Computed example of a mutant assay.
Amino acid sequence: MLINTPHDLGSAIRERRKALGLDQVELAAQVGASRRWLIQVENGSSGASLRLLLRTLNALGMRLSVGAESLTQQSSEQPLSTPDLDAVIARARRMAPPK
């Protein structure tokens, strides 16, 4: 599954949780979060803690992978750039609807 938005990630987490037969309370307890937090993540809230998201993916046996869209777009002489995760998270937070 290609993840482009917080909603995509939330949907993937919800589908996997259900496939494993876990309810929200059980999964939240496994990752050290509240059920309310998990509900927000599954609904696509972009303000979720990256640390807890990664723990949630781990508890579900899921892995997060980052890669370039097309290696042919970059010159073979230029090294691949590493995305600034802080900038990505800050941009996602700015796009989040007000609470």
Rank of each mutant, 00 (worst) to 15 (best):
Val41Ile: 11
Ser46Ile: 03
Leu60Ser: 06
Leu50Trp: 08
Thr82Cys: 14
Ser34Tyr: 06
Leu9Val: 00
Ala12His: 09
Arg51Ala: 09
Ser76Trp: 08
Pro83Val: 13
Gly67Lys: 13
Glu69Gln: 09
Gly32Glu: 09
Leu20Ile: 10
Trp37Asn: 05
Ile3Arg: 07
Thr72Met: 09
Gln78Phe: 06
Leu85Gln: 09
Pro98Tyr: 08
Pro97His: 11
Ser46Thr: 10
Leu80Ser: 10
Ile3Ser: 05
Ser46Tyr: 04
Thr5Leu: 04
Val31Met: 03
Asn43Val: 01
Glu26Trp: 02
Ala19Arg: 15
Ala96Asn: 07
Ser11Trp: 04
Ala33Gly: 01
Arg91Ala: 15
Gln78Asn: 11
Ile13Thr: 04
Val31Trp: 02
Arg35Ser: 15
Leu85Glu: 07
Leu53Val: 12
Gly21Cys: 11
Val66Ala: 15
Ala96Pro: 03
Asn4Lys: 15
Arg36Asp: 07
Gln40Met: 08
Asp84Tyr: 01
Asn43Met: 10
Arg93Cys: 14
Arg93Ala: 14
Met62Trp: 06
Arg93Glu: 15
Gln30Cys: 08
Arg35Leu: 02
Ala90Asn: 13
Pro97Trp: 02
Glu69His: 10
Lys99Asp: 14
Ser81Phe: 02
Met1Trp: 14
Gly47Leu: 07
Lys18Val: 08
Gln74His: 12
Leu57Ser: 00
Arg36Gly: 12
Gly21Phe: 12
Ala96His: 06
Val31Leu: 04
Arg63Pro: 00
Arg93Thr: 14
Met95Arg: 09
Arg35Asp: 12
Gln78Ser: 13
Gly44Ala: 06
Ser65Gln: 09
Ala19Tyr: 10
Gln24Val: 08
Asn4Pro: 00
Ser76Phe: 14
Leu20Tyr: 08
Glu77Gly: 11
Glu15Arg: 14
Pro97Phe: 06
Ala59His: 07
Ala48His: 14
Gln24Asp: 05
Thr72Gln: 12
Leu53Gly: 01
Arg14Thr: 07
Glu42Leu: 06
Leu52Trp: 06
Ala28Trp: 02
